[in-house]
Nucleic acid binder design. Sequence first.
DNA 1: AAATTAGGTTACGCGAC
DNA 2: GTCGCCAAACCTAATTT
Length: 319
Amino acid sequence: MSESSLRQRRDVDERTDARAESTDSCPECGDGSVILDDVRGELVCQGCGFVLRNRLIDPGAEWSAFTHEESQEKSRVGSPMTEMLHDKGLTTEIHWKNADAQGRPLSARKQETIKRLRTWQDRLRISQTGERNLQLALSEINRMTSALELPQQVGEMASVIYRQALENNLVQGRSIEGVASSSLYIACRKRGLPRSLDEFETVARVERSEIARSYRSLVVQQDLEMKPIDPKQFVPRFCSELELGQRVKREATEILERSGDAGLHSGKSPTGLAGAAIYLAARRCDEELTQSRIADVAQVTEVTIRNRYQEQLALIEQS
DNA sequence: AAATTAGGTTACGCGAC
DNA sequence: GTCGCCAAACCTAATTT
């Protein structure tokens, strides 16, 4: 028996849940000789051949390592799959640097070879129709995700939305950047981390109206049911930008809760509503906050803050 | 700083073509 | 599809409290 099969045997023993199953007795013939066939991924009875479970997925690494170096050496695992690269990060990367894996420079002859390989690699990767389109869109999504300081997950989601739009020929006739922007905009809202169109405009390469237009068509054509933005979702972000306490945050959320129930929200800009609620909450909590500062953060004018503030104040006071 | 006011801009829905 | 129009929300800017 070779060394590697010895190691495999030990791996099986280390999989505690698998071992627990393997000590169970077979429901068919009644004796206790159920074993794990880790090549086929099945639990089988040695006596009668009955398969208890198949298609088991081994959640562990397929090798064992006891030191960090060993783990580095044995790992054949690459980067995780990501939606944010047009090939989901699965094709080969050829580094731009003319050096081998140890960092030594390549000979002139080798450099020529690598250069040719790079050319072919690029052609292979981008050749199919639509791929160029996708690549541009995804790098755009990637860029804006970082610029807006959004978690990677949101970018991944936006990429999925964009792929679907592309499949359904919705990108035709409008700009790639526009559809990419609105994909991210939709992903933000779906994840409950809304960014206003104004914020998008500052990082996008297209106008606000264009983002809005492709947003509309995406929502309508793809049957993405979008609920209107809940102003409450802006509260945590605005409060932390203004370094306001937890009390203000809670109070503001409650105010929005109530003004929403009273039907004060329809048609009004959610950032304005959130801003006014925070302003009102800060006053009630005796925290320092001018209209001009909150207007700045919420990206509406002081006038809007005032108007919403008055409405909310009237509602709070009558109770 | 906050409020008030006036006048201009914009996005949106709707119907006509 | 797009043109034209409307009403509401918001904006800017000037002025007052």
